[in-house]
Amino acid sequence: MKGVVFNLLEEFVRRAHGEHAWEALLARAGVDGAYTSLGNYADADLGALVTAASEMLGQPPPTIVRAFGRAALPLLAEKYPNFFRPFPSTRSFLLALNDIIHPEVNKLYRGAETPTFQFDASSPDVLVMGCTSARRLCQFAQGLIEGAAAPYREDVTSDETLCMHRGNARCEFRIALRSAS
């Protein structure tokens, strides 16, 4: 797992729960917490942190992961505004993930295992987005999709109609977007 993911998690926890929450989370998870954005760290560290957060907040891990994804995208938009600037809407941003965003991510994080997305954009109202991820972090992906709408001031609803955790070959989200009221 790339260090930038841990950095985003740290930022999310600090902003949402205060300065000491991150230290408490690290202590409970039993990880050392020295993460730099360009480094590579064990996936198990993220698992331990999610488990610890789940225990501390009394919420199931999928909920924690989805909330993290939702918060992480705006943080990424703060850190890398150029990734978002060329796209006028959440939909256009999502459609560019495979061809533009992930190649950009790979420039920074060589060897990053980015998920692959498949799209059905035939409907102007609903974007169907398939997701194949080696780590099967579909809740994180769903959170990121929802979080992507925030920089564009759009409201989003997403339903996961297929899921690798339920035995499907891929996860699939039906995404409806509209301008925030």
Partner: peptide, 8 residues
Amino acid sequence: EAIAERIT
């Protein structure tokens, strides 16, 4: 990190 990312 920002410097390292820019150089990268």
